[in-house]
Structure formats: structure tokens, C-alpha cells
Design a protein around this nucleic acid. Structure first.
Lengths: 209, 209
DNA sequence: CCGATTCTTGAACGAGCAGTCAAGAATATT
DNA sequence: AATATTCTTGACTGCTCGTTCAAGAATCGG
């Protein structure tokens, strides 16, 4: 019963998240959101409650569409290679001039005066989630003997999580992506790969068939 | 000729920079600046032109008082140790709960909608300056044989600059400083120290006298 | 001690903000 | 088709923002 929505929620959230991504939660005005999404004020407030609610929904959408994708590489057999791929995927995404600079999660967590603890909590949760994925993958690497036995998955996860974040930071701050690859390259020097002497299973994996 | 100022410029800039540091340029209102500095509106505008001018002055003050100090460790004989000390000094400063979170430079460069190209330019200049100090020190390390001959000072400077920035990011984003030391520890694994085999001058420097 | 100059005070201004609300339009049930 | 419900539209509210400005207070040169 009742009138049907004339817009597609996900399309609206895509537009909104792009806007938040490019300009930040505080700075984006509801007027801009109207213009960007094509919706009227009432529709926005009816569908998402308020500006904060719209942002939280847009954040979810962003993570699904952009934020989480590089982390898929962590499923690779060789975790060290997977992390490298992950970082390179981030760099690649940054190099696309069609995308706003930086990362919406990082940008938001650093923007002062979001003031909203709901937003802070949501962002922190997402970031922790990603770090959890890293830690899992690294723990697997250790179990499989890919890295030194005394390496700490948590430490490494924190480090590579920080590197991933700092890629967005550096890109947004300095603008050039030339240095980003240097960061990735150098960061991978810290990967405690076990020397090839052990010939652990999983080195040089060949696809069957 | 004319009435004398009743306030100390530097003290005012200290207060203002702390406020900007804690809450960010966009979010801080002139009303807050009045309350924090104790100055009236007219005094602020008379002394610094406008909000942007006040921020730029406060930024200079911040760099002199807080931002630049950890980089003094780069003057150490052993540059690798100096970089480690620098990063540890940053962590230490972050661990002081009396200080606002993060780094004013990084925070500002990431804040969306500063909108002012003057602010962006000032911040980018400062950041580049710090990276320049890093590169200089690393180049010296290479000349003195402290690191591998084929190491790239620029690459390494970018990396450790990124690490320094990401410390502020992680601290502001996650809040705990437990992980910060893990980041420093792991980042130093990427330092291409030359193996002790060469016994290069400068290794284990003893103070004379 | 007077007048020129600089600083301080606090009220006022216009603009932009997030959010509200009443009225009209579209849909589903009866 | 009548009615209840939901969505859309756009004007409106109260508020805060950065900035301006006139008038008073303090200081210095003559």
C-alpha cells in the first residue's frame, strides 16, 4: 500500500557516497545531496532519516563497492603475494582519476568534528574488520610455514593495515601516485618470508589442470 | 603610535593551534576561537586578517613547537637509529593524552573542504619540507656506507615519511597507541642496513672523551 | 594635553546550514 | 471508485556561521 519510490536506493547511495568521499561528511550540504542524487529534501529525509543516516547507508555501500575489493587478494595461496596484490590494487584504484582521492573510511575517521559517535563507531568497526581479514590471512601464512614461525600476525596486520591506510593518506595529501608504489615496494621488505631453504608447500604454486 | 596589544601573539597562536589541532579548521568556529584565546572578535580579525590567516599563523607555530621536533633525531650519526628515534618520538608525543590526537599537518591535509588553496599549499609545503629532511639524512647514510649502495634515498624517504604520517592516522583512527610501536618495529625491518661484514665507519659509534 | 593612530568591544548583517511540515501525487486494499 | 498509506515537492523555520563596522579605550608624537 502507498506510493512507490521513484528512485533506486543503491544508485542514490552510490551518488551520495561519491560526494561524501570527495568532499567529506561535514562539508557536504543537504542541498548538494539533493542536486547529486536528484531527490528532493523530503525524499531523502523520508528514506534515510537524516544526514547522518544517509551517510551511514552510503558508507555501507562504499565498503561493498570499493573499500573491500582490494582485500579479496588476501585469499591467494601465497599470502605475501596476496598482500602485495592488495596494496597494488589500492594504488591502482587511487590512480584512477575518476575516483575521488583517498579512502572514504580513512578520510572520515580523520575528519574532525564528525562529532557523531555513530559515525565514528561505524568507521572504526569497518577498519577493524579489514585488519581482522589481514590478521587471519597472516595467521594462515604462519601455519603454512610461509613466514618465520616467531612472526606476530597481529603486529604484521597492524603494520600492513597502516600501510594500506597511509596509501590513501599520501595520495590525498601529496596527489602524486608515483610515491605510492615506492611505499608498497618498501613495505614488502618487512614481510618475514621464510627462506626458500625449507621448500615449504605452497611455494611456486602451480594450477592443476 | 597607537594603542598597544594586550595579548601575546605566540600565546594566542598556541591556543588557536591546539584548537585547530583538536577539532580541525572547518569545524572550529570563530566563537570558539574567541573563547579559547580570550580575544574579542575584532582583535582576532585585526591581528590576523581572517580565520584563514589565523590558521596559517597557528600552523607555523605548531610546526615550530610540535611538528618538527621529532625530526631533530635525524641528525644522529647512525641514520637508521635516528629514524627509529624519530618514529618513537612521534609515538611518544601521541601517547601524551594532553595532546590532541594525530598531527595538525596530516589532519589538515586530509580534511575535506579546507577549500582554501593557501592552506593546502602551506600544508603541502611543510610536509615536503619534512620529507626533504628525511631524504637528506638517508642520502648521507648511503654516502657513509650505512646502507646498501643501491638503496634509493627518495624511495626510503617516501616510505618513512608515509610511516610517520600513518602513525598519526592510526592513532587518531584507532585511538590506542599499542599498535603504533608495532608499526615502528615492523617499518624498521625495511631499513636496508648494510651487513656488519663491511665494518663500515659509523657502525657502533663511540663518543670520544 | 591634544590629535592621530591603533587596538578592543560587542552588536549587527547576510548567507548558508540541517531539519520540518503541509499539501499534492501516486499506489494498494477494500 | 473510495480510502488509507506512502512518497514527492518546495517553501519555511530557527540557528550558526564568518565577517563587518561604529564607537569607546589606550597609547604615542608634538
Amino acid at each position: 500500500m502507498g506510493r512507490n519510490r521513484e528512485f533506486d536506493d543503491e544508485a542514490v547511495l552510490d551518488r551520495a557516497s561519491r560526494l561524501f568521499w570527495r568532499r567529506g561528511y561535514e562539508v557536504v550540504s543537504v542541498q548538494e545531496l539533493e542536486a547529486s542524487t536528484g531527490l528532493g529534501r523530503g525524499s531523502l529525509y523520508n528514506a534515510f532519516g537524516d544526514k547522518e543516516g544517509l551517510f551511514l547507508a552510503a558508507l555501507e555501500r562504499y565498503v561493498d563497492r570499493h573499500g573491500a575489493t582490494p582485500f579479496r587478494h588476501l585469499a591467494e595461496r601465497d599470502v605475501g603475494r596476496g598482500i602485495r596484490r592488495m596494496l597494488e590494487a589500492i594504488v591502482e584504484r587511487m590512480s584512477d582519476p575518476a575516483n575521488p582521492r583517498g579512502c572514504l573510511l580513512t578520510n572520515t575517521s580523520l575528519a574532525h568534528g564528525s562529532g557523531s559517535s555513530r559515525i565514528d563507531a561505524a568507521v572504526a568497526g569497518k577498519v577493524r574488520e579489514m585488519e581482522g581479514l589481514l590478521e587471519e590471512a597472516i595467521a594462515r601464512a604462519r601455519e603454512e610455514g610461509q613466514i618465520e614461525a616467531d612472526a606476530s600476525p597481529r603486529r604484521l596486520a597492524r603494520f600492513y593495515g597502516a600501510v594500506a591506510q597511509s596509501l590513501g593518506v599520501m595520495h590525498k595529501a601529496l596527489g602524486n601516485e608515483a610515491g605510492l608504489r615506492a611505499i608498497v615496494e618498501t613495505a614488502m621488505r618487512a614481510w618475514p618470508a621464510r627462506k626458500a631453504g625449507g621448500a615449504a608447500r605452497g611455494s611456486r604454486p602451480r594450477r592443476r589442470g
